[in-house]
């Protein structure tokens, strides 16, 4: 009875531990491979193009309207006690510190992370990864490394765009819809938003990019079971990286960038 209970408890931990081991293996080897030739610059640039450049339209659209709606709502609240002048600063700080990196992370996880997991997963089930191995080409070096690097670099760059366009969206709504004056909007923005806020947000975004790259590659790499397996890996890659982004965001805000 006691032995069975202990076995049951053990089994509960075995699978998560195995999974943790595999994630660490992929992430660790992906990062270790940074220093192992071939460098694969062309692949990395192609991935940067896919994760970064091709995500630009969705980032621009989302950031513009996020800045706009946040301005609209905070204006209403601040108006209650006649402090409309705080809108610009509030939106600026919230965007650069939290909204831009987090929303960029979630969007990249949904758009690029899912595609990476699906592509690598399809390569796994159609034996293309075995073929790489059989050709004496390390699939981690060839497939995983460029994606992890590209995701880690692209996420902060996209976040910078999010910052810029988000504040522009806020500006447009504040000036043209809410009829705020230019100095009213700009003074607090200029006062409150430090370079530290912006760099902090970009650092977070890099961590989120790393999470997206590692999770997507891991889910794709260990795909099993044909088309159904590819679908599962894709969904699971988005869910896991989104949750990890939100959870790690809290801990970074609490302990690393208070």
């Amino acid at each position: 009875m006691i032995v069975r209970a202990i076995e049951a408890i053990g089994r509960m931990f075995v699978e998560p531990m195995e999974e943790l081991g595999r994630v660490t293996h992929i992430g660790g080897r992906g990062l270790l491979n940074l220093f192992i030739p071939p460098i694969r610059i062309r692949h990395t640039i192609a991935q940067l193009e896919f994760i970064g450049v091709q995500s630009l339209p969705i980032i621009i659209l989302t950031s513009f309207f996020t800045g706009g709606v946040f301005t609209l709502q905070s204006f209403k609240a601040f108006q209650l006690f006649g402090a409309q002048g705080l809108v610009g600063g509030t939106v600026g700080v919230a965007l650069t510190r939290e909204l831009a990196p987090t929303l960029t992370g979630l969007l990249v996880a949904g758009r690029a992370g899912s595609a990476m997991a699906a592509e690598i997963g399809a390569m796994r089930v159609s034996e293309q990864i075995d073929a790489l191995d059989a050709m004496a080409i390390d699939p981690i070096n060839y497939l995983v490394k460029p994606r992890i690097i590209a995701a880690t670099l692209a996420a902060p760059l996209l976040t910078a765009v999010f910052d810029l366009i988000g504040i522009f969206g806020s500006y447009v709504v504040a000036i043209y819809t809410l009829r705020m004056s230019y100095p009213d909007f700009m003074i607090r923005l200029d006062d409150w938003v430090d370079w530290d806020d912006i760099w902090g947000g970009l650092f977070k975004a890099a961590v989120f990019g790393l999470i997206i790259g590692v999770v997507a590659c891991y889910k794709g790499f260990y795909t099993k079971g044909g088309a159904v397996g590819v679908g599962k890996s894709t969904t699971s890659s988005v869910v896991v990286s989104s949750v990890m982004i939100l959870v790690s965001n809290y801990f970074i805000a609490r302990y690393i960038l208070p």
């Binding site: 293309q128 050709m135 004496a136």
Partner: peptide, 28 residues
């Protein structure tokens, strides 16, 4: 990996890379 250099493998469904044309696949 060194030993694998001595092998050529024809996979069941060929396992060609979808993103490359035939020439690039064979040249890879």
């Amino acid at each position: 990996r060194t030993v694998r250099n001595r092998f050529g493998v024809v996979f069941q469904d060929a396992a060609l890379f979808d993103s490359m044309n035939v020439l690039d696949n064979v040249a890879f």
